[in-house]
């Protein structure tokens, strides 16, 4: 679990993904870049949560716990925003 090599690889991947967000806005139209950026942000989050916070190696119930929090705010944001259109 505590493999420095693995952590380093993930760190490098995170740096690359972070840089890619800026590049998306140079290469693609606005909404494509927004979509790709958000997908990238989610990918980065999953990497950090799974390995740096080692949720991958914990009981699955912890993942569900955090997932419930994320779902709650997703629901609030989407439903509230939808309500004004």
């Amino acid at each position: 679990m505590t493999s420095v090599k693995l952590y380093t690889a993930i760190y490098v991947a995170l740096l690359v993904l972070a840089t890619s967000k800026v590049i998306f806005f140079q290469l693609f139209d606005y909404w494509t870049a927004v979509s790709m950026t958000m997908v990238t942000a989610v990918a980065k989050t999953l990497l950090i949560v799974a390995y740096f916070q080692h949720l991958r190696f914990e009981p699955r119930s912890l993942t569900y716990l955090v997932g419930m929090g994320a779902f709650a705010v997703f629901l609030l944001t989407v439903a509230a925003t939808y309500s004004i259109f």
Binding site: V66, G69, A72, V73, T77, A80, T81, I84
Partner: peptide, 22 residues
Amino acid sequence: FLASDVVVFGAVIGAFIFIRAG
């Protein structure tokens, strides 16, 4: 605690998305 903090930050970020969309 972190699950609850996800909602605190989510509410604040959600407020941004709501206002901007509006």
